[in-house]
Amino acid sequence: MSLFNDWNQELTPLLEKYKGRKHPLEYNNLYQLLVMVVLSAQDSDANINKIAPALFEVYPNMESLAVSNVDALIPHISKVRNFGTKASWLLEIAQTIKTDSAIPTTMENLVALKGIGRKSANVIMREAGSPAEGIIADLHVIRVAPRIGIISETKDGNKVEKQLMQVLPKAIWGEIGMAISFLGREICRPTNPKCEVCPVSKSCDYYKSAVLG
């Protein structure tokens, strides 16, 4: 972990590469994003993208979801991990919010909803263009941020987020988590990372030790 790096400057090439890129969940509006984020917990974005079109044909908005029930919803999400629990969460969210226009975009109000933790809230806020109150810490960020040397290693997403918030300036919170996530998905793979094309290899602990020796 590099304690004295000016990470704001070191990470600029990464932000320039990925800033503003849409999340891999293929949503068309805030309602779809919220539903897909809840469904994607412990599942893949690709799987959620696959089942989403048929789901949203039946449930095009929060109002239609609010008047449904578990038995009606489950057939549309049965290929999603933990679908029973997620069906209950989505129905409770819909019955709480009631309309698309009432979907919250602040940390406090999002994490108050069933099935939405800080990671999910950060994703929704980033995509909605809301001021960042934290940093996205998904599985890719949990793996890649310590590898680069920005933070010390932990598997706890909340601890990763907290560490990142301590060492990175608030001005980049809204974009840096997703940028690190894209880096992990595309370049900084668990095995055979493509260090030669990485925008932050010069600042990376892994590159310095494992590649340069």
Rank of each mutant, 00 (worst) to 15 (best):
H76L: 08
G184N: 08
V144S: 07
T12R: 15
W7Q: 05
F83V: 10
I48L: 12
M178C: 12
R143E: 12
G213F: 05
A179F: 04
V211C: 07
G149S: 10
V58E: 15
W89T: 10
P53F: 13
D71T: 03
R21Y: 09
C204E: 00
K114C: 08
I148Q: 01
N5I: 14
E196C: 11
D205A: 15
P193M: 08
V67A: 11
E16A: 14
N49P: 04
M62L: 07
K22F: 06
S78E: 15
G134E: 04
Q42F: 00
R189K: 15
I136Q: 06
F83Q: 14
R21W: 13
F182T: 04
I136M: 14
F4C: 00
Q95E: 12
L139R: 11
R189W: 07
C204D: 01
Q95P: 05
V197Q: 08
M36C: 06
I150E: 02
F4T: 12
D156E: 08
V197I: 15
N69R: 10
P104D: 01
M62V: 09
L25A: 10
V167P: 05
A41C: 01
A145D: 14
A87K: 04
K50M: 14
Y59Q: 12
T96G: 00
E10R: 15
A179H: 05
E108I: 13
E10G: 13
T85P: 12
Y59W: 07
G177E: 11
E175D: 15
Y31E: 09
W89R: 12
V111S: 09
P193Y: 07
M62R: 01
E57M: 15
A210G: 00
T154A: 09
N5W: 11
L113M: 05
L15C: 13
L34K: 11
C198Y: 03
N192W: 07
P24I: 08
F4E: 13
F56C: 04
K119N: 06
G129I: 02
Y206D: 02
R147Q: 04
D138M: 04
I135Y: 04
I150M: 14
N61D: 15
P193C: 10
R147M: 05
G174F: 06
V58W: 07
V58A: 15
K159H: 11
K22E: 05
N8T: 06
D6Y: 04
K119F: 11
D138T: 02
I187F: 07
K17I: 12
D100E: 10
I77A: 11
C198K: 10
L91A: 01
M107T: 13
E16M: 14
I48S: 09
V211S: 13
K208D: 14
L65P: 01
L90Y: 01
I135N: 02
L113G: 01
V80S: 11
P146H: 12
V144C: 05
T99Q: 02
S152F: 14
G157F: 06
T105S: 05
R189G: 04
E92A: 06
S203W: 07
I176F: 08
N69K: 03
P60L: 09
I77K: 04
K202N: 06
R147N: 09
L55W: 00
T154D: 12
D43G: 05
S152E: 15
I176C: 01
V123C: 05
P169T: 02
I97Y: 01
I74Q: 10
R118S: 03
L168P: 09
Y31Q: 09
I142N: 01
K50Y: 14
D45T: 09
